[in-house]
Amino acid sequence: MTTFKLIINGKTLKGEITIEAVDAAEKEKIFKQYANDNGIDGEWTYDDATKTFTVTE
C-alpha cells in the first residue's frame, strides 16, 4: 500500500486528506468522488514524486 494525499483548494472547502491505496488510479477515483460529493469542481493535478493530488477551484 502507498500513502496518497489530496490537497483541496476550493472556494468553500480547503484542507488535506491522506489515505492509503494500492495505486494512484484507485486513489484518483476515490478522491474525485469525494470532491464531487462535496461540490468541488476544479482543475486536478498529480505529483508522482510526492504522491499528491491537488484540486483547485
Rank of each mutant, 00 (worst) to 15 (best):
G39S: 05
D37S: 08
N9Y: 13
T2M: 12
K51R: 12
L6V: 13
T54H: 08
F4D: 00
K29L: 11
E20C: 14
Y34D: 00
D37C: 14
L6N: 00
T54A: 03
L13A: 06
A24Y: 11
Y34C: 12
V22D: 09
L6F: 14
T56F: 10
G15K: 14
D37Q: 08
E43P: 04
V55T: 02
I8R: 00
G42V: 08
G39P: 03
E43V: 12
K29V: 08
E57F: 15
M1L: 11
N9G: 04
T3G: 03
T50W: 02
E20W: 14
A21E: 04
K14E: 09
G15N: 07
E43H: 10
T18G: 03
T56G: 04
D48A: 09
I30N: 02
N9K: 08
F31H: 00
D47W: 03
Y34Q: 00
K14C: 15
D37I: 09
F31V: 12
F31K: 00
G10V: 11
E20I: 13
N36A: 14
N38C: 14
K29F: 10
E26N: 12
M1R: 11
I19K: 01
N36K: 14
I17M: 05
A25T: 09
I30M: 06
G10D: 01
I8L: 08
Y46L: 01
A35N: 02
A49F: 07
G42F: 10
I7E: 01
A49T: 09
E16P: 06
G42A: 06
D41S: 12
L6M: 04
Y34S: 01
K5T: 13
T52E: 01
I7M: 04
D47C: 07
T56A: 04
F53P: 01
G10A: 05
K27R: 14
G15Y: 15
K27A: 15
A24W: 13
A35G: 03
T52Y: 02
Y34F: 13
T45L: 05
I17Y: 12
K51E: 03
T56H: 08
G39Q: 06
Y46K: 01
N9V: 13
T18S: 06
G15F: 15
K27N: 12
I40L: 07
T18L: 12
K5I: 13
K29S: 10
E43W: 12
T2S: 07
T52A: 02
A21P: 02
A24H: 12
T56M: 05
F53W: 08
A35H: 02
A25R: 07
G42S: 02
K29W: 12
G42D: 02
D47H: 03
I17E: 01
F4Q: 02
K51T: 03
K32M: 12
D48H: 06
F31Y: 03
T54P: 00
E20G: 06
W44A: 01
E43N: 08
M1K: 12
K5M: 07
N9W: 13
I8T: 00
I8S: 01
G39C: 11
L6D: 02
V22F: 12
T18C: 14
A49V: 09
D37A: 11
A35I: 13
E43D: 10
D41L: 13
I7C: 12
I19E: 02
L6I: 15
V22A: 11
A24R: 09
I17K: 01
I40C: 11
F53N: 01
T50H: 03
T52P: 00
Y46R: 00
D48M: 04
N9D: 05
E43Q: 09
T52N: 02
A21Q: 04
A49E: 07
K11M: 12
T54Y: 11
V55D: 02
T2K: 05
E43T: 11
K51L: 06
V22L: 10
T2C: 15
K32E: 06
E26W: 12
F4V: 06
T3F: 14
K27I: 15
K11Y: 11
F31M: 10
T45F: 08
G42Q: 04
T50S: 07
T12M: 10
T2G: 05
E43A: 09
W44K: 00
D23K: 06
